[in-house]
């Protein structure tokens, strides 16, 4: 309970800091007055249409990635499972790029998240099939590398074939992710899919707790493993697909956050799910503030910061689990 209260406070503080961070320094008081102003002044447009959707997307995407990571790790009982590392984000990016470049997204806005979701669904299903129910670490990581490489290669190919001279440069965006200049259109596009994902993954708590005792024990406790697996696949695809469709693939959130929070919830997967959602939101908010403070007018990609924090931790986890990687 104390942990939840702390994480909620952290998210609120970071949300406020995110709202007052921008390229133009403006006083905190003036920023908030403008947030609720209805006069259509330039500052109110900046607060309501640029900074607010950006902060909201950071919360939504962070929560989605955090809860997806916690759920996958709980199901596979493997601390290395994370949507970015196992290729789900890369696949979702490919789906989004295909929807944009075929003109489908222009004809029908929902095609963008739907296509990303579909591609993510294929990737999660492939990973779970390849890794098997116990999620052998080595198979999982190798399958993830292969799917990631394949999806990234197709993304680059599609963007290089585009008649638009700027399309090729956005390979960086799809691989590293950014929240720069997103609008409420993106919030409304992603929210319904993410909400479905949160509900599905949030409902897994009891099953994942039972699964810590082993599959047989879980089955004896009345947990239907096939149902749990299906909810996990669809929930992760919905969360990661919608987030990637609007902000590119932001890696390592689902790896770092559950790892940091696990000791505080006594290793209990059901509590870790919700804690990771809050922790993920805080982490993406913090990173999005940091990229704007570090390089205000350069659109430094979120993935750069995430990898700086996440990759050393990933190496540490590999070092710790190397005995079981055989």
């Amino acid at each position: 309970m104390k942990l939840t209260a702390f994480l909620i406070c952290l998210c609120l503080v970071l949300f406020v800091i995110s709202l007052v961070t921008g390229t133009t320094p403006v006083s905190v008081w003036h920023s908030f007055a403008s947030l609720f102003a209805t006069d259509g002044s330039p500052m109110s447009v900046v607060m309501q249409q640029i900074r607010l959707p950006r902060a909201l997307l950071a919360v939504m995407i962070g929560a989605s990635l955090g809860v997806s990571g916690a759920a996958m790790q709980g199901y596979l009982r493997n601390p290395l499972a994370e949507p970015g590392l196992i290729g789900v984000s890369a696949a979702a990016g490919l789906g989004a790029v295909l929807a944009l470049q075929t003109g489908l997204a222009a004809a029908f806005a929902l095609a963008l998240p739907l296509s990303a979701l579909l591609a993510a669904l294929i990737a999660v299903a492939m990973i779970l099939t390849l890794a098997g129910p116990r999620g052998a670490a080595l198979t999982l990581i190798l399958a993830g590398i292969a799917i990631s490489a394949l999806a990234s290669a197709f993304t680059s190919l599609v963007l290089n074939l585009s008649p638009n001279p700027f399309a090729a440069a956005e390979i960086v965006f799809w691989m590293l992710g950014s929240l720069a200049d997103r609008s409420f259109a993106h919030v409304w596009l992603a929210l319904p899919f993410m909400a479905v994902g949160w509900l599905l993954l949030g409902s897994l708590g009891r099953g994942l707790d039972a699964l810590t005792l082993g599959e047989d024990a879980a089955a004896a406790m009345g947990v239907r493993l096939s149902g749990l697996r299906l909810a996990l696949v669809i929930g992760t695809a919905a969360c990661v697909g919608a987030g990637t469709a609007v902000a590119g693939s932001i890696g390592f959130v689902g790896l770092v956050v559950p790892h940091v929070l696990r000791p505080f919830v006594g290793g209990q997967p059901s509590r870790l799910l919700w804690a990771s959602a809050l922790g993920g939101a805080a982490m993406v908010l913090a990173a999005d503030i940091a990229v704007r403070v570090a390089l205000p007018d350069r659109d430094l990609k979120l993935g750069v910061l995430m990898a700086l924090v996440g990759a050393p931790l990933f190496l540490h986890l590999i070092y710790k689990t190397r005995g079981t990687l055989q």
Binding site: V45, S183, F184
Partner: peptide
């Protein structure tokens, strides 16, 4: 004036621009 989609062009369509009185 280029055909095909690019995220680089998103800034031109941002709703904040059309909200400016």
């Amino acid at each position: 004036n280029y055909p095909g989609a690019a995220r680089a062009e998103d800034n031109l369509d941002h709703p904040a621009l059309s909200s400016l009185k």
